[in-house]
Design a protein around this nucleic acid. Sequence first.
DNA 1: CGGTTTTCATACTCGGATGGTAGGAATTCG
DNA 2: CGAATTCCTACCATCCGAGTATGAAAACCG
Lengths: 165, 165
Amino acid sequence: MHITAKVDYAVRTLIELAAAGPSPSKAEFLAQSQTIPHKFLEAVLADLRRGGLVNSRRGPDGGYWLARPAEDITIADVIRTVEGPLASVRGERPEDVDYAGPAAKLQDVWIAVRVNLRAVLENVSLADVANGQLPGFLITLTSDPGAWERRTRPATSVDEGAARG
Amino acid sequence: MHITAKVDYAVRTLIELAAAGPSPSKAEFLAQSQTIPHKFLEAVLADLRRGGLVNSRRGPDGGYWLARPAEDITIADVIRTVEGPLASVRGERPEDVDYAGPAAKLQDVWIAVRVNLRAVLENVSLADVANGQLPGFLITLTSDPGAWERRTRPATSVDEGAARG
DNA sequence: CGGTTTTCATACTCGGATGGTAGGAATTCG
DNA sequence: CGAATTCCTACCATCCGAGTATGAAAACCG
C-alpha cells in the first residue's frame, strides 16, 4: 500500500496548476514550487498530458494548465492516469482473483479495501485541496487523533517472557 | 496500492492454518492447498515465524501452526509483519510528509486513506475469513454491486459528473 | 529570417524490490 | 541410525522506481 513518488509528484503538480488558474505554468516553476526534480517532472507531465488531464504549449509564455476544471478532477483520476488501477492483488484486479478452500472469502476483503480507497480518493478534487477546504467526510475521518498516530503490530506475548498483563 | 504476492501468500497460508486448527501443517501441504511455490512459501513462513505469528516444529509430524488464536490475528497484522507499514508515501509515513503551498492539505488525504485502510484491515481476523463469516461492516461494504465493478478513469470528454457527497 | 524559450521524445543509468530457485545444515521422530 | 521436515544462506532474473542526458520540435520575438 505504497504511494509512489510519481503519484505524489503528479498530484502536487496538478494542485499547483489548480491554484494557478487558466494561465500556463512552466515546468521549471512547478518543479521549484513543489521541490521536484525538473526533468523527472517533465516525464510526469508528459503522462498527464497523454492522459488528458493537462494541456500544454511550447515556447516563451508556454507551459501547462489543467484540461478540465479543478473541481472535476479527483485524486483517483490522477492515480489511475499515471499508475493504473487503484488497487490490485498480484497484478490482478480484486474482482478477478480466485482463492481455494477456506481463503475463498479473502476476495471480499480486497474488494472492501478498494471500496474504502475509492470512498476517499474519488471524492476529493484538486480544487478541494488547493482551496484548503476538504469535504466534510474527510474532516471527520482525520479529526480523530488516532488517525495521526502510527500503529505498530502488537508485540507477541511469547517473546516478552516476563511481563504480560 | 498494490497487494504483493508475498502478502497474498502469507494471508492465505495463515487462513489455511486457522482452518487446520492446532495440529501442525506441513509447508508442502500448504503450498499445494493454495497453489504457492513451495520454496517461496518457506521464505514467507520464516518471516511469519520471526514475526511471531506462527510456531513450527521440525521432523516427521512437524509443521506450522498459529502462535495466537485466529480471532486475534487481523489482516493488518499479517501485512505489517511481512511488509511493514500499511500505508506509506514515498517511503515515509503519512504523518511525516510535508507539503508546500496549496498542496499542504494533501497530507490529510493520505491520512484519510490510511484511516480507511485500517478500518477494513484491522477489523477482519483470520477466523472471520476461515469461517466464511465476515463481520457486518464488511458485508455492507461489499454488498453494493458497484463495489465489484471495475472503474476506469473518465474519458477525456466530460460525460458523467461524479456523485459527490 | 535567426535566436530564444519552452515542450517533447528517446535513451540511458543505477539501485532495490519482487518473485523465485538451489543446496545443504539442523532438528525431530520412529 | 535414517527419514522427514524445518531452517539457513546464497544466488538469480526481471522488472520497477527514480532520476539524468541529449537533442529535436514547436512557438514566439525581433
